[in-house]
């Protein structure tokens, strides 16, 4: 196999911290306000020689965003001049909403999606903050969301369900 190399005059490999920072700019394709790092699906970033290995964990096994995310991660790292990127898909341990970052949870709520809550339902309406809520369905517009409604402002909203 031909040795991978960094392009241009980059003779120093970017640190894994730098790679993580770059990945934090790659949006989730279905909920673009949060990054793939916020989503908690980037499990590992490491150099293997001159190749960069990025390990991703899918959220739901049939989620169509998974392959789009892989393409986005690959493209973002190539844009930064990394020529050889190896993407690994790891399913164990399975992805859990516990891996969402605090920053990601806050952004979800601002965006109008209630973040996951160990109690099994949203803590409050993301619009009016009322706690008088009802569940419409455990399934929503994407595999990771459920549909809820606020009984005060009467607006339906998405809830990022625990898994």
């Amino acid at each position: 196999m031909a040795p991978a190399r960094l392009s241009g005059r980059d003779l120093v490999k970017p640190s894994t911290d730098q790679i993580w920072a770059w990945l934090d700019d790659v949006p989730d394709p279905e909920i673009p306000v949060i990054s793939v790092v916020d989503l908690g699906i980037v499990r590992d970033v490491q150099w293997a020689g001159d190749a960069l290995e990025v390990t991703l964990t899918p959220t739901y096994s049939g989620c169509p965003a998974t392959s789009v995310i892989e393409i986005s991660v690959d493209a973002a790292l190539r844009d930064k001049g990394i020529e050889t990127v190896t993407l690994k898909r790891q399913i164990a341990p399975p992805w859990t909403t516990d891996w969402l970052s605090d920053k990601g949870r806050a952004k979800l709520e601002t965006y109008g999606i209630a973040p996951p809550n160990p109690a099994g339902g949203p803590a409050q309406c993301p619009r009016c903050h009322s706690t008088d809520l009802e569940r419409i369905s455990q399934f929503g517009s994407t595999p990771c969301k459920a549909q809820w409604r606020c009984k005060d402002c009467l607006e339906p909203f998405d809830y990022f369900k625990c898994i």
């Binding site: 096994s61 049939g62 369905s137 455990q138 399934f139 595999p143």
Partner: peptide, 20 residues
């Protein structure tokens, strides 16, 4: 509508598991 979405989500999960 909600049941239509739930059915589609269930089907999607099952097809995803099939891939594995």
């Amino acid at each position: 509508l909600e049941e239509d979405i739930a059915l589609a989500n269930t089907a999607l999960d099952l097809i995803g598991q099939t891939q594995m």
